[in-house]
Design a protein around this nucleic acid. Structure first.
Lengths: 175, 175
DNA sequence: ATAAATTCTACCGATTTAGTTGGGAATGAG
DNA sequence: CTCATTCCCAACTAAATCGGTAGAATTTAT
């Protein structure tokens, strides 16, 4: 066949698009949830802020944010007040809300392997230590996310070991 | 507030289903890639193993595995040999291949926030420190994934700080 | 009671995930 | 040479998730 086809080598590669794979990624939902929660933590304790206001403050699509706030409410992280002067506010002090709490509320357990916890997988042969690695990954995420609270974030005072990670030389290298 | 409303507790709650969200999750692709690479690392250096055999050894869907091996080959992690006695083998010594290399080959950069690097986001207001947190998350992932090699995994000798994470009391708590 | 404000629920399209299918192209054995 | 074996590669698919919208339901102020 052939004949003319080619030129292919040069490659058209329209590369339709930006690949966008996801494994160990941070979803928009998680990012939005943390940002909205920061705004709530930065405001007066029991004064409700309406969803629309949060959306504007953080440039989050308003209707999507409502889904997120709903998940946070179901997990007991925020509470809501309906009616004319309603809105959302934190359900407990910002010092007691970790980032891990927020992420789990909107996106489920950390470091799940194909929907299940790492310790529920079973690996054989040369790969038998792989479960340990996923457990280590989860533990290292927890070191950051379980210890950092909303209060830390808005006060711009992160826990020492978290700050140390950020200050480490290659933390900002893009790779 | 109310009074009667309740009953809510009982609530139909169809609970649509097991949620299965994904943020900071480990994809099937990543898991399969690491397991297949372990088998290659556990075998003799330049003796090719065919995809079908790898698939059986690790119970990975064979055709899907070919996609994954193709990605690993494009990233220079494995090499392949066609023909009757062909198959796949590691392109370089197992000591020089980190888990981060493998994950990036099949699923792109670690800890991307909505498709972009954390340092490319810009945050305002009460959330201005959020970028730092995502950088810390990425750095903590790297601590585990950049230092652990395929050789470590098959030898069942993980780096000290990784083993320390695994041995820490709450690493295995399910949460 | 009623209107205004806001939450809440159900839906929707596009992308991604996790695969499958099938054809072609090297390679080595006989 | 020829043919079986194996990789290679592109397209296709079903189901789930992502990101987002629309409208009904609820609460509060007046």
């Amino acid at each position: 066949m052939s004949s003319v086809d080619t030129e292919i080598s040069s490659m058209s590669t329209p590369i339709s698009l930006i690949s966008q794979e996801r494994s160990l990624k941070i979803s928009a939902k998680t990012d939005y949830a943390v940002r909205a929660a920061c705004e709530l933590a930065g405001a007066e304790p029991a004064k409700p802020i309406k969803a629309e206001t949060l959306a504007q403050l953080q440039a989050i699509p308003a209707n999507f944010l409502e889904n997120i706030l709903s998940a946070l409410r179901n997990s007991g992280i925020v509470r809501s007040q309906r009616g004319a002067v309603g809105g959302y506010f934190l359900a407990r002090p910002a010092e007691t809300i970790s980032l891990a709490d927020i992420i789990r509320a909107v996106d489920g357990p950390l470091a799940a392997v194909r929907g299940e916890a790492p310790e529920d997988q079973n690996y054989s042969g040369a790969a038998s230590k792989v479960a340990d690695i996923w457990v280590a990954v989860r533990a290292s995420l927890r070191v950051v996310l379980e210890e950092t609270t909303l209060a830390d974030l808005v006060a711009q005072k992160l826990p020492k070991h978290v700050q140390a990670l950020i200050d480490s030389p290659d933390a900002w290298s893009r790779r």
